[in-house]
Amino acid sequence: MKIRKAITSDIENILKTTRACASKMREQKIFQWNEHYPNYEAFKEDVDREELFVLESKEKIIGCITISTLKDDIYNEINWLTPDEKQIYLHRLAVHPDYQGQGCAQKLMSFAEDYALDNNFLSIRLDTFSKNIRNVNFYERRGYIRLGEVFFPKQSDHPFYCYELILKK
């Protein structure tokens, strides 16, 4: 398996992965992703900013993660642990259901954390759906601290928990 920067021609395969994830989550009564999100436009912006990475196995895209320096306005209501100076924000972490449970998400997160350390970021910030207990536990086991919640009206009536990990060299 390898991780590389995504290119525009990868987006359709990335969407196949995220749609498969959304379908699996719906089967589990987790209504985190829907027809509005994630979408082609979000991934295209990620590619244009060179912030989207894909995980490949045998040259097949099986996962993705966005590592961004842009702070979404919705995060302004959170009392973060570090000042807004040099953070990365993780978005759209996905592993195709056929490859879940094999350490792929761990690999993507370790890549993002190493990227942040190598580029002297102070912390990593992210959000995850409050009803996706598997994700909540995943981030908390990695040491991320829950700081508050935000709502994405086009996604769910339930909150998304915001997390931060302070990086130490």
Score class of each variant (00 low, 15 high):
V136A: 01
L90T: 03
M109V: 03
K5Q: 15
D10L: 07
K44G: 01
L165N: 03
S23F: 13
L70K: 14
G143S: 02
N76F: 00
R141S: 13
L117I: 12
E59A: 07
E113G: 07
I88A: 07
E12F: 02
T18N: 11
K154Q: 15
I62F: 09
R142E: 08
Q100C: 05
E27L: 12
F129C: 06
K16F: 06
N119P: 14
N119K: 10
T18C: 15
K107L: 10
E59L: 03
D10E: 04
R4H: 09
K2P: 08
E140R: 08
E51A: 14
Q102Y: 14
H36I: 06
Y115I: 07
K154G: 11
Y163A: 05
I67Q: 09
S68A: 15
C21Q: 03
I62S: 08
T17R: 01
A20D: 12
R92M: 11
L52Y: 08
V136L: 05
W80C: 12
Y40D: 13
E45M: 10
V54K: 07
F160L: 00
K29T: 15
N13S: 10
A22T: 14
P97D: 08
I145C: 06
Y99Q: 05
T8I: 14
A112D: 07
A94W: 02
H91W: 12
I88G: 02
R142H: 10
A105E: 01
F53N: 07
K2W: 02
I78L: 05
F151H: 12
V150T: 09
E27K: 11
R26K: 15
Y89T: 12
T128V: 01
D114H: 08
A116E: 07
L90C: 06
S23T: 14
T18A: 10
R19T: 13
Q28H: 12
R125M: 07
Q155M: 15
K86Y: 12
A20G: 08
R19P: 10
I67D: 10
I166F: 01
S156G: 05
Q100W: 00
I11C: 01
Y40L: 14
V54W: 00
T8D: 12
E12S: 14
L90G: 06
N13D: 14
D114T: 06
S156H: 01
I7F: 06
K16I: 11
G63I: 00
E41R: 09
K16C: 09
Y161Q: 00
Y40W: 13
G101P: 09
L15I: 12
A112N: 11
R4Y: 09
F151S: 05
E77K: 08
L15W: 05
L93C: 04
L117C: 11
L126G: 11
H158M: 04
S130R: 03
E113Q: 09
N13T: 04
S68M: 10
E56T: 12
E85T: 10
E12A: 12
D72K: 09
E85P: 10
D127G: 06
K107T: 14
P159Y: 00
E164R: 07
Y40M: 11
N39M: 08
N132M: 04
N79G: 10
